[in-house]
Design a protein around this nucleic acid. Sequence first.
DNA 1: GCCGTTTTCGGCCCGACTGTTTTCAGTCG
Length: 606
Amino acid sequence: MSVQSQLVVTLEEIGQMMELLGEDSYRVSAHARAARVIGDLTDDIEELAKDRAKVLAIEGIGPKLADKIIEFCETGRIPEHAELLARVPAGLLPLLSVSGLGPKTLRMLWQQGGVTDRASLEAIIASGAILTLPRMGAKSVEKIKQSLAFAAAGGQQRLSIGLVLPVAEAWVSAIEKVPGVKSVAFAGSLRRGKDSIGDIDILATSAEPELLADAFCAMPGVTNVLAKGATKCSVRIAVPGMIGRWKSKDEAEPPEAGFQIDLRVIPKESWGAALLYFTGSKEHNVALRERALSRGMTLNEYGLYKLDAKSTVAKAKERDHEKGELVASRTEADVYRVLELPFIPPEIRENRGELVLKETPRLVEVADVQAELHAHTTASDGRLSIRELAERAKGLGFHTIAVTDHSKSSYGVANGLSTERLREHIKGVRRVNEEIEGITVLAGSEVDILADGSLDYSDELLAELDVVVASPHVSLAQDSETATARLLRAIRHPLVHIIGHPTGRLINRRRGLEPDIRELAAAAKEHDVALEINTHWMRLDLRDLHVRVAMDAGCVVVINNDVHESGDFEHLRLGVLTARRGGVTPERCVNTWTAKKLHGWLKAKR
DNA sequence: GCCGTTTTCGGCCCGACTGTTTTCAGTCG
């Protein structure tokens, strides 16, 4: 784990332990916020820590937290963390993530019920002793019991957006068919395009809210109704945790994940305010509400209200919005406009600097993508022939498709091509390119970056190819320093155009390499190499924060579907969401370029 | 513990639902 991730965990734990000790909630949230901003940092925290002023410049970091952060970077520890660990049973911390168990309840269970970990919690539930504790009735205990069982079955994990998006879309269509329903949309992290999703938030307007609530809770697939009210319902459904080619043959079918769907029914005049509110992120919302307050307004999910002259913050606190004049609520854009902001695309609503934008950024869109530069055929481990691949790409309106089958080291796992087979394959690609009209078919390779950073084919052979995608496939547990050196060597190779799925991570399955992305991005900029955003739902690699680093460094990216079969082209939207989260504009994404510009870029390395 | 176009002290976003309560605390998003 990098120093940055270790620091994030340490700060989070300090906050959690303070919370369990019942300390001031603002100190608790200061630590939680610090953990988040450190986690989001695209600068090297160890570098920053050498200059106290730079640490203090981080939003939400004051003198005390700055000292703790610097001490951690210098010594690898924060004394306060150890002191707290001596006072709080370590076994309590994981219980905080059990749904329905909050800090107050856990603290009470600890101090009055002797609970110190999961086992002791289960014991007082089994013995019935828990029922004698304050606010612990039969229903509450049953909920805790269920949540524990649910967590033990692995039910609380986030799932890849690629698995969740189709489920959410199916639910939206089902809800649209309920009588009385007017508008339906999903919001939350799904709308923001995060790579993994914890639950689905759906927003609806209806002429008959009660009917909708009943219908929603009775939908096929619902395994559990968690809450049901007039405007808000929560249910749990089952979602397969894994599908497709990433499951090894001897692996048992993974358990279905219990997944939560929240439905909010709102008046149609509040649509924009509600969509804004439920899309989040929470941090973006908090920042918006603070902005509203500073302008004499208050924002909630029903609208933006102007407080009259004398009623500023004090009036807002009375939660009496009847006295305020509604100034915006119908569309998100209306709310932003009154707050003197441009429309902020959902993907960048993370309170990572988007509130200083003067105009809406023109982020890359699915329709901008005109080329695929990473595709496999039956020559290695793909399902399509060269021609089928080219026809499919042409059907999507692409001007260019690159055939990039695996290289020789991947023979065992992906039927990688020997030198001889690649030479034959190039001829086959050239032939199809001659025969087909309306699309350029390029000869390339997804060449393995070996453990030491060397490439899997000779330079002489690579020079015959139009496109070289260099990717790591093996030795994905290397330490950070080795991984950085390995990838830097590939970036500096004069014949390489693209670094494919740079970290090799698989969502929920494999951590992958943890190279210094800042160094890679700087080198990629210098050598004009594109870093790939691999769109496969299991990869989404580069991930959003890495993309942001790449954009900050001034380098270019490519959004590649890593096509193995026809359906893989449909992953494009996932990669585009990730790119947008990283702030990618079309001019910085090589496969949105015209054929002339893209081909010129490729030829510059030949 | 942080922060400042009314503040260097006194604030810190807002609302729905549940369960255990006779008016609200806790959790969640």
